[in-house]
Nucleic acid binder design. Structure first.
Length: 621
DNA sequence: TTAGGGTTAG
């Protein structure tokens, strides 16, 4: 079999199907194959790939279909009913070329071949994948006409088709009138509501369904994660465990993703052990999510160990790891890894380049960044997306090329968003360029009027330049626009308990001790040259009050709490909802030096790892 | 030979 397949002028290999499908084998090619087989004395029925060949050419035109049909009759009519062959073609096509499957179905109908439940099922799958609602409805009518509506399996496929075509009224009507439902029926509907972001209805259905499978739990957990509700996902996972339902690989992926979002390292590690004990680490997707979880929980080295230990890697594995190094300020590692990826022959995608460009901008590698940007277009045929433009503006702005960055924005073929103008604003702050800061804020106020972060930066630019009146004007603008400052919070997890600190808060039972410890540290910090930078406080108050506010920033409180409640020498890990302010950045550098502790802070953009008085971000963030 | 849940950026 293999020897003749290799020597054939026309070979159809499964992994080349998509390209073959776009230019189907012509009848003449098929005739060549036919002749070749006859000449070699190989019986046609031994050509296993014949059904593939027929499915590829059978749909290209009516003549090919007739020819394929005659081939089928010639080879198989005595042993296998013709319909089974067509069903297997339909099955194959519905996966790799659904539009051809639909064409094949219409040829079958035209040729008066009577469909069975399998034919309908495969065709509906093709309808789902191509969102062909009208054809799906025609198949529905056919199912009724042929009396197949007692087949739960088929009805589930039909329900899935209505869901995938986002025809929820039909889906719901169908669900309500189904004579028989099974757990799959409920799972299909629940999944669709999670995809539509209507978690309340998904949850309601989940609560009332008569029986639940692992897939029911997993569908809802994954739904919560996708809808940005990781806490609910983890809560449900705990319910699932209490109910005695064993998580599978997909459950593990979903819960790990929730851990990544929340920085819940303890649960993440527990899942890692569980996955290992079940043999799930052979699954690439499990490992990819595990890498992401470790990266987002601040353990980039462990993530790298997982990555290095993988026997099979996909573009997602590489992209996650490259992006992870970038996020942790390890630009060299990111670039080295990309070089290795190139050697393996795995093609980078647009996400890979987001990570690479981040690495370049964090390290100030201007030329490399420009090269990557050009290379992604010219060498890899990728179309830059808004994220790539954002990275480039960031890269240019940080390097002080603000005019060029501005020009770059004006020439962008896509509409600049808040991230893009925010990058220019960030550059304007670093390079103290009031004009460019004003230009950026002009757009940001329109795009994202409720985000207070931009006003803070602009006010800092003015204050830096000694324009205190202008800074005050920004505060007035903020007030007039009704912008509320997002309350900053930081969390630290010690012994499975997460402690949350809100700026200025005094609710924590250890508040007095925390303030006392802070005063001790402050004394030592001032001896080492710390001068509080009250320009980050945008409130109308005197200097002493501003300093007081500054000293109650949530990340400072969380770090001090960590110092008091963890053994000497251990790393302190903090999560923060906003970007670290510049005063806290200076303070944490000094604290890491004074206490000889590593402090890792995950802010809304990236990681800062403070050690021996320096930060992994090299003061660019 | 048919149906349902999963990963990287933002």
């Amino acid at each position: 079999m293999s020897s003749f397949t290799l020597s054939l002028p026309l070979t159809v290999q499964p992994h080349h199907r998509s390209s073959s499908a776009s230019s189907p084998a012509s009848p003449s090619q098929l005739k060549q194959l036919h002749a070749h087989l006859l000449k070699a004395g190989i019986p046609l029925s031994s050509a296993v790939s014949l059904s593939d060949v027929a499915s590829l050419c059978g749909v290209s035109d009516a003549a090919s279909f007739s020819y394929a049909r005659s081939l089928f009759r010639h080879c198989y009519s005595s042993t296998t009913p013709e319909l089974i062959l067509w069903n297997s073609c339909l099955n194959a096509l519905s996966s790799f070329s659904p539009s051809d499957a639909l064409l094949l179905f219409s040829r079958l109908r035209f040729a008066d071949i009577l469909p069975d439940t399998f034919t309908c099922s495969f065709t509906l799958k093709a309808c789902s994948r191509t969102s062909s609602l009208s054809l799906g409805m025609a198949v529905h009518a056919l199912i009724e006409k042929l009396g197949f509506q007692v087949d739960v399996f088929l009805l589930n496929t039909l329900l899935h088709m209505y869901c995938r075509c986002e025809s929820m009224i039909d889906a719901r009507r169908m669900f309500e009138t189904m004579p028989l439902r099974d757990v799959v029926t409920w799972n299909i509907l629940i999944t669709q509501y999670t995809k539509l972001g209507v978690m309340e209805i998904a949850r309601e259905l989940f609560e009332v369904m008569p029986e639940r499978s692992v897939r029911s739990w997993t569908a809802l957990i994954a739904g919560y994660v996708q809808c940005g509700q990781p806490k609910e996902a983890i809560q449900l996972f705990q319910e699932m465990e209490n109910a005695g339902c064993q998580p599978n690989e997909v459950t593990v992926v979903a819960v790990l993703a929730a851990c990544a979002d929340l920085g819940a390292l303890d649960l993440g590690e527990r899942l890692c052990k569980y996955a290992e004990s079940c043999g799930f680490l052979k699954n690439v997707r499990v490992c990819n999510t595990l890498i992401d979880m470790y990266i987002k929980c601040g353990c980039v080295d462990i993530a790298r160990n997982v990555f290095d230990g993988m026997t099979e890697r996909t573009v997602v594995s590489w992209s996650a790891m490259i992006g992870g190094h970038a996020m942790h300020g390890q630009g060299e590692e990111a670039l080295e890894l990309f070089a290795k990826m190139d050697e393996t022959g795995i093609r980078p995608n647009s996400v890979t380049f987001v990570g690479l460009l981040h690495a370049c901008s964090h390290m100030g590698l201007l030329d490399e960044g420009r090269r990557f940007f050009t290379s992604m277009i010219e060498d890899y045929g990728l179309v830059p997306e808004i994220e790539h433009y954002g990275c480039m503006v960031d890269l240019l702005s940080r390097a002080g090329l603000l005019e060029e960055a501005h020009e770059f924005i004006r020439k962008m073929p896509v509409e600049p968003n808040g991230v893009v103008w925010g990058a220019l604003l960030g550059g304007a702050r670093v390079h103290k360029d009031i004009k460019m800061g004003e230009e950026a804020i002009k757009h940001l106020v329109k795009l994202d009027p409720s985000n207070d972060g931009y006003y803070v930066v602009l006010s800092n630019i003015y204050a830096d330049a000694g324009h205190f009146d202008a800074a005050a004007q920004v505060r007035r603008l903020m007030r007039d626009q009704g912008v509320k400052k997002t309350p900053g919070w930081s969390t630290i997890t010690i012994n499975n308990v997460t402690h949350e600190f809100v700026a200025g808060e005094s609710k924590h039972p250890q508040t007095e001790e925390i303030y006392k410890k802070w005063d001790e540290l402050l004394h030592e910090m001032k001896l080492r040259g710390y001068v509080p930078d009250s320009s980050v406080v945008l409130l109308d108050m005197d200097e002493a009050e501003k300093e007081h506010v500054l000293y109650r920033h949530s990340e400072k409180l969380a770090v001090v709490f960590g110092l008091m409640n963890t053994p000497p020498g251990t790393t302190i890990k903090i999560m923060k909802n906003l970007r670290v302010c510049s005063d806290c950045h200076v303070a944490l550098k000094l604290i890491s030096e004074i206490t000889d502790r590593q402090i890792v802070v995950r802010d809304r953009n990236r990681f800062h790892s403070f050690k021996n008085g320096t930060c992994s971000c090299r003061d660019y963030w």
